[in-house]
Structures are given as C-alpha cells and as structure tokens.
Design a protein around this nucleic acid. Structure first.
Lengths: 231, 231
DNA sequence: TAATTATTTTTGTGATCACATTTTCAAAAT
DNA sequence: ATTTTGAAAATGTGATCACAAAAATAATTA
C-alpha cells in the first residue's frame, strides 16, 4: 500500500490540494499507469502525496463522476476492467463525439490556432521518435483538445476526456505487451482540411485518425491482450 | 442563506450522506429549481439538509465534474449562466449523442423493454395532462434513459445526463415565463421504429423529438426569455 | 454625500478524530 | 488439509475544528 505509480507533478501556486490530487491521479490513469482492477485506498493515496483523506476523497469522487474510476458495492474504488465489448463501445462513441467536436470547431478556427496545432503535432512526432509513448499519448490528446477548443462554447471536451480516461488503462496494458505503440497520424490531413475550412474533410480526418489508431485494435487482439495481462 | 429550494427526497437505507446530497441537488438542478447565477454555499446546503460540510463538498465536486455547477476563481460555486450560443451548442450535442445512443441500443432491445417504454410514456402523458411540468420532464428523461440502457455496455448515459443538467436551469426559466411547457412527443414514433428494429427510423424519431422539443426554442425566444429572467 | 478604510462575519479548505463496516490473518475445529 | 471462528488491522464515512481568504458591514475620511 502507498507505493502508487504516481509521479509527482508540477504544482502551481494557489492550486488546492484536492485539485492537485485530482490532476495527478487523472494523468496516471490517462496514460495507463494504474492497472484495471487495482483498488485505490484513500489513506494510501493521501500518504503517497503527503496530504490527508479529505482532499483525496474529493479527487476520487470527481474521477468517479468522470468515468475514470468505479465505486464498488463494498465502497472500494478501482479502475474499471476492460472488455472487448466495452472497448468497441468506447471507440465508437469517441468517433462520433470527436467528429462532432471537430465540425463545430471549424467555423471558429484561426490561422493562429492552426499554427499551434502544427506545433503540437511536431512535438508529438518528436516524442514518438524518442519512443516516449506516454508523452506522445498526451501530446496526441493535446492536439485534439486544441482543435476542439477553437469553438468558444464547446461543452464536449469533458466528455471526450472522459472517454480518454476510460481507454487509458487499456492503453497501459497495450503498451506493456506491444513493444511500441503504433501511432497513426492523420493530423496533417486534418490541418490541410482546416486550412480549407472544409468541415467534411476535417471530420473525415478525425474519423480516420481514430479508426486507424486506437480503433485499429481488432477484437481478437484485444481479447488476447486482456488475457495476457491477466484480466 | 440556507433556505434552498430543495425538496426532501426518499432516502433508501444505506445511502451515504454525500450520495443523498448529490441526488437532491442534482434533481433540483435538473428540473430547473435552482437559478443560474445563484451561488451555493457549502455550509448553507449542509444546514438545509441537516448534515455537515464534508459530504456536501463531495456532492458539489461531483456536480461540478458533471457540468451542472461551475467553480469560479473566487471558489464560489454557482449554476452556470445560459446564453443563446451555449444553448444551441448543448442542443446540437444532445442530438448527436442521443441519436448515437439510440442506434447502439436497437440491437439489444427486447419486447419487455419496449413495454416498459410504453409504460413510461403513458405516465408522462398523464403528468402533462395534470400540468405537472417537473414530473413530466423527469419522465421524459426516464423514457430516453430506459431506451439507451438497453445497450448493456453503454457509456453514454452519464454524458447525456450531463447535457440535461446543463439545460435544466434554462428549462426552469422557461417554465416560469411560458405558462405551460410544450411537450413534443415523438415517443410513439420511436416505439414503432423499435418494434421494427429500424435503427435509422429510431434515430430519426429521437432527432425529431429533440429538435421539435427543446431544440424548438428559437434564438430570439431564448434571448427574450433570458432577458426577462434578468440573465 | 460619496469614497475609502477598518472591522466583523462568512466561507472554502484541509487536517484530525471517532465510529461502523469490511478485510485480513491467525487460531481452532471439523 | 479444509473450513470455521475470532481477533486485529485497515478502510470508508462524516462531524468538527483551525486557519486563511473573501465578502459584507461599519466607521472614517474627503
């Protein structure tokens, strides 16, 4: 107990303790460094990050609401287990959500925003070439988030991030058993479509990015991975 | 302070205090009985439901994660204000999400499930004829939730409910200024399509139900309502 | 009278404690 | 050896308290 795979993080001044706990746990789950089935204890986490139960409990509640954690009947809290069916449900939902988010972003896109997307994409390519899977994963998410954020009234990003959180633990398993995560990159295609303000083409690029990326796991491969990981 | 529009609720044995607080606040927001801009205090709510700050804080954090509440920079917590742009964003998102949820439910639908839908729809009609808006609203949501729940791996309901929570406060305003909320009912159409296991027709019925229902508010009407309500 | 300052009250936050439940583990019985 | 029983430890939950920041109110000044 207590030796959680939680890397310390930068903690900006003024950030509350529960917020810090939430961010650290969130990132750990997002990049798959907490195993599905592993149960989390409030006191254990509090000790690991040198605080007390109260703020940790708040962080865990938030993560439960975000779908990242599940509260069992015995009130134990754990990372939900993945199944092939749940995986395909999550991926299809992700595809629908992100295509919509991308479409709604197009009318608000600026050149400045496209430049930023190029920048993030370059950083991701660099992380991939360094074989730094976790960073590449976070930068890939940053790319998508940046795109959808162009829409000033967007209400969809929390939902997209909820999906990412739910897929995270599986990615952690995949990263352990597949030497290198295969990153598909339809980002250049998306950027080109954005420059033309072509909604359909942007949505198509996002759809392809997802279906050829994480959506590319075949059912048999998923079941195989889960079996290997003892799930 | 303290005199919150919070009707007491049935509290099943074994339900924790924070869970109870969450449910009561959630329902109050969902049916629009807490005004946008109204700021909530932890101690005020704790007093109103005869408990203490700790579980109330947890409930408020969850509701923030669900998009129902917003935490300001000064750490005040309030129901977010609505704008015409945000409204249209939420409605378009709701349409996309629920069409997808409906489609994914169709392959799993059972006759038993359709019977249940008929039952809920009848109860809603009855509430409408009693002019009991809040109950009709909750039963309408129950109809949609029941349909999407047919899919055993559904991960979309929390997101749909998040949208409902964000639209709730506006509905509260609308109910005050429009004598009777006009309930569109494409439910029979949806049920007929379900019996035929026709995904496209089901999705079309849900789309129509939303676009003619809450989506039917025109931009000018929304701005007018918000102005009337002093928003 | 209007603006500014000082004081009081309210509020969010997080640590701590007590309690009940659950889990774990060792001892005893079958 | 397996199961059952009992004690000990661990855990979730919620109330309370102290502290700091913020808001509201009172007092003072221009």
């Amino acid at each position: 107990m207590g030796n959680l795979a939680l890397e310390p993080m930068d903690r900006p001044e003024g950030m509350t303790t529960h917020e810090y706990a939430h961010r650290r746990l969130r990132q750990a789950i997002m990049v798959g460094s907490i195993r599905p089935g592993e149960s989390l204890t409030i006191r254990g986490i509090a000790e690991a990050m040198e605080s007390s139960p109260t703020p940790v409990r708040e962080a865990l509640r938030r993560l439960s609401s975000e779908g990242a954690l599940r509260v069992l009947d015995n009130r134990r809290i754990m990372v939900p287990r993945m199944t092939a069916d749940r995986f395909s449900e999550l991926v299809s939902l992700r595809s629908v959500l992100e295509q919509h988010a991308a479409r709604r972003a197009v009318p608000h896109i600026t050149e400045r925003c496209i430049d930023r997307l190029e920048e993030v994409d370059r950083a991701q390519d660099e992380a991939i070439s360094r074989k730094d899977n976790a960073t590449a994963l976070l930068l890939n998410q940053e790319f998508h988030r940046t795109l959808y954020s162009a829409n000033p009234e967007q209400a969809i990003i929390p939902m997209v991030e909820s999906i990412w959180l739910q897929l995270g633990p599986f990615l952690g398993i995949a990263m352990e058993h597949v030497a290198q995560l295969y990153f598909v990159d339809r980002h250049q295609e998306a950027i080109a479509a954005l420059r033309k303000r072509d909604e359909d083409a942007v949505a198509a690029a996002i759809k392809a990015d997802i279906s050829e990326g994480i959506g590319g796991f075949e059912r048999a491969a998923i079941e195989n991975l889960l079996r290997l990981a003892g799930q």
